[in-house]
Design a protein around this nucleic acid. Structure first.
Lengths: 235, 235
DNA sequence: GACCTTTCAAAGGTCTTACCTTTATATTAT
DNA sequence: ATAATATAAAGGTAAGACCTTTGAAAGGTC
């Protein structure tokens, strides 16, 4: 046969445009803050319909690379790239893929322990105050018969803020979103809330003292305990 | 003043559609493999133009949640959700945001050390063979005057595969993409290639023996060495 | 009856055109 | 000088017409 295998991928026009614009942003043709040509001009330049242009712009926009404003002085602009742009804005959509949940838990463990370690090294007075508030919040809720989930979350968020690394912070945010169901399940188990609170207090003291090794160790144990039950049974 | 603050966010119609479809996928209205109504039907259902529908579908498609085929038996289908869908498909776009690079390096350090630890616990014969090949590759390139970047990358990839956690694997992939320039810079420094190779061999032996603690420790040192120069000077 | 060819229609892909909405600025009137 | 008004550019939306792809049904041939 003369025919070779056909890897002929027909791309949509909007994808071509997408790729092109992407590479133009990467190579610096359009830099942060720059204005792109208007949709009508792009349509003219790429020789495709405005609809195709818009489909590409919409994707780039949703992904956090572009920003559009109507009116005079409006147009499409290249946004400052942030970590948010790395994480899929629809992460929550993950749902119940079991293997992934196990893997995500593993990921979260290492993420949180490192956050605790860094937090011990970098926390400010403000961070410490925020952690204290979260602990109080959790205590109060538990005393009133709640499971303290709000304070629990607040504590981990406060730690993440204290570690002064936006990548870790965002990663944790993503992981949390994905594992929200898992966490709720875990916390509902009898006795967990009180023990969780104890753990938080210990971690807090270690972080406050700036003892990074201890912070890491305690967080590791905290997560491992919390996950021990969850991993196999609850899904 | 009677006027309250205006949180009036006018959303684009395509965004409304996007949100709605997203929530329908999350809540299980449309499950993996299901076919969505045709664009024309959706247009009718949502009472918006087909263009708006398409803009929403294009975003969901690019994000990896949907898949479209033309022709008879074609249509728009819900894809199986994978980890890939969590990472922005355009991560490479990051570029030279300095603060982010520092933070990403910190992230990569913890990622790679944990990968090394897990790899020591889970590596198969196949993984070991793959690591060996990468080491040979690096050695040969260095002997021929190269910087061994290909083998270097291959080694880290092999480790990632050996850790048997797709989340770590994908995260590393993302981090690598973002830091590609950084890595090249680092490797070009005099003397680095040989030292890097030595490190790899040591790590390899630890992983092969299944010594997870040592693997972690060696990788930690390896990364720290490699990053020590890079962090401040080279950007 | 088995097999090939043709026809067909649904669904995505694309283009065109027209109109709406927003909004800073220039113009005009008071 | 101030306030009301017109303007035009740019994004947002709609409607409709084609094009292309592609599996399956219909029909014909051996």
């Amino acid at each position: 046969m003369d025919n070779k295998i056909k890897p002929i991928k027909k791309r949509r026009l909007s994808e071509e445009v997408l790729k092109k614009l992407q590479s133009m942003i990467i190579d610096g043709t359009y830099k942060t803050g720059d204005q792109l040509p208007s949709e009508r001009e792009l349509s003219e330049l790429f020789q495709v319909s405005r609809a195709s242009i818009r489909e590409a712009l919409r994707v780039l926009g949703t992904l956090g690379f572009l920003d559009s404003r109507v009116g005079v002085g409006g147009g499409t602009f290249v946004k400052k790239i942030s970590i948010d742009a790395l994480i899929n804005p629809f992460s929550e959509i993950l749902g119940n893929e079991k293997e992934l949940i196990i893997e995500m838990l593993e990921f979260r463990r290492i993420l949180e322990t490192e956050i605790a370690r860094l937090a011990a090294l970098r926390r400010t007075e403000e961070d410490i105050a925020r952690m204290e508030r979260s602990i109080d919040l959790m205590r109060e809720d538990i005393e009133n018969g709640g499971i303290g989930i709000e304070g629990d979350t607040a504590f981990h968020d406060a730690l993440a803020a204290a570690c002064k690394n936006s990548v870790f912070e965002k990663m944790l945010l993503m992981a949390k979103g994905l594992l929200v169901k898992t966490r709720q399940t875990t916390l509902k188990l009898k006795g967990r809330p009180e023990k969780g609170l104890e753990d938080h207090i210990k971690i807090f003291n270690a972080v406050k003292k700036g003892n990074s090794k201890l912070s890491l160790k305690l967080m590791m144990e905290h997560i491992e305990k919390a996950q021990a039950d969850a991993t196999v049974k609850n899904f």
